[in-house]
Design a binder for these strands. Structure first.
Lengths: 164, 164
DNA sequence: TATTGTTATACTCTATAACTATA
DNA sequence: TATAGTTATAGAGTATAACAATA
C-alpha cells in the first residue's frame, strides 16, 4: 500500500486485474488516474529527495527563490499554493538548515525577504538533478512524444479549470 | 486559493504568468502538473457531489460494492487504498445514511459483508451521473482524442510505476 | 499464528482567528 | 483600513498499536 497520505478520495475502485494499456475499454475514471499518478510520483520524488534531507515542498520553495531572489514569504506561499501561516514553519525549517535567510525588506518593513544561501543553492541544484531523474524515470513507459503530450495536456487542463 | 487540503508538496513554482498552451518551452515540472490537475479535479467532483451529501471517497466505496456485492470491509479498504482501520469510520458514515448494511460473513465470522441498500444504489447512480459530467466538463478543453490519450497515458504510468 | 473488525491514539498538512507591526 | 509575519488552535485524513474474536 502507498505510504503517502492525505490525498483526496478515490473516484473509482481499483480493478482486481488492472487492464493492460493495450485494452480499449474500461479505462478507470479520471479521478482515479489523476490521483494515483500524482500519488506514485509524489512517493518517488519524496523517496529520492529523502537522502538530501529535503521534502518536495521544501525543494519547491527553494526553487521559487532561485528563479527570482528576495521574494517575500507571502509571495512564495502564493506560488506554492499554501497559506502564509503555513509558510512560516516551512521557512523556519529551511532557515534551520541554513538554506535560506530572512532579512527585513528594505522598502517595506512588514515584509521579510527570503534569500537562498550558498548551501541552499547547492541543495537546490542537487535536488534539481534528482527531480529531473525522477521525471525521466517515471515517464519512461511512455515515449518521449507521448510524455510531452501528456505534460501539455495537463497544463491545458489546469489552465482551463483554473477558477475551480 | 484551492481549498482542498493535504495533497503532497509542489514540485515547482507556479509561473507568475502561466504559459499559454501554445508555447513550447518552460512546461512546469511533472509534479506540479499532476498535483494541480488532481487538485482541481478533486475540488470539482467534491463540489458537485456535495448536494448529494456524499464525498468522492464515499461514492467510490459504494461503487466498489456495486461491481461486486458483499465484499468485506478489508477488501473495500484495499480497493480504495486506505487502511482497514480507516475503513471502519467510512462504513459507519455510509451505514448511518442507510446506504449500506453490515452483515456477518456467512463463511468467515471474522468478516463483515458490506451490502448496498436500495437508497445506496440510488445515490450511487445519481453520483455516477454527476461524476461522468465532471469528467466531461473537466476534459472539455482537450479534444476527445486527446482526452482519451491522456487517460491512457496516465494508466500506463500507474501500471509502470506500480511498485513504488 | 494469522486475519478481521474495532478502538484509542498520534501524526501530517493545512487552514482560521487573532495579534503586532507597518503601510 | 489593509497587509505581512506570527502564534495558537482546530480540523481533515490518515496510520500504528493493541485487543477480542475467529480462522
Amino acid at each position: 500500500m502507498l505510504t503517502i497520505k492525505k490525498v483526496y478520495g478515490l473516484q473509482v475502485p481499483i480493478p482486481a486485474h488492472p487492464p493492460r494499456p493495450s485494452e480499449e475499454a474500461a479505462l478507470p475514471r479520471l479521478g482515479y488516474l489523476l490521483k494515483h499518478a500524482a500519488l506514485h510520483y509524489a512517493e518517488l520524488t519524496s523517496a529520492e529527495l529523502a537522502p538530501l534531507g529535503i521534502t518536495p515542498q521544501e525543494w519547491a520553495a527553494l526553487n521559487c527563490l532561485d528563479d527570482q531572489p528576495d521574494r517575500s514569504q507571502k509571495e512564495v506561499a502564493d506560488l506554492l499554493g499554501i497559506d502564509r501561516t503555513t509558510m512560516v514553519a516551512l521557512i523556519d525549517r529551511l532557515q534551520t538548515q541554513a538554506w535560506v535567510e530572512r532579512r527585513p525588506h528594505p522598502a517595506d518593513r512588514r515584509k521579510n525577504t527570503v534569500t537562498l544561501t550558498p548551501p541552499g543553492r547547492a541543495i537546490l541544484h542537487s535536488g534539481a538533478t534528482i527531480i529531473d531523474n525522477c521525471e525521466h524515470q517515471f515517464l519512461a513507459a511512455l515515449g518521449a512524444p507521448a510524455a510531452h503530450q501528456l505534460k501539455q495536456a495537463l497544463r491545458t487542463l489546469i489552465t482551463a479549470n483554473q477558477s475551480r
